[in-house]
Amino acid sequence: MAQTKITRLNRRNFLLAVGAGGAATVAAIAAKTASQAQPAATGTGKRSTRGYSASEHINNYYRTTKV
């Protein structure tokens, strides 16, 4: 009886170990993928560009504010 119990526990431990190992592998792959994908999502070059320039339209607006 005691021998049977030990055998069952061993088998459970084996399955647990396989499950934990698999989860760790998946997490490692996900972390690697996320760290590679992050620069592409946030590092768009447009963030540092300038949009404003004193065009004729804008200078005309400034003129109208002085009325």
Partner: peptide, 25 residues
Amino acid sequence: RNRLAEGKLPACAEMCSTKALLGGD
């Protein structure tokens, strides 16, 4: 809309009838 890229200023400031709202440099 990206008005700044079109060489314009915010619509709210440009549309203000009394020029109370100022926007720009």
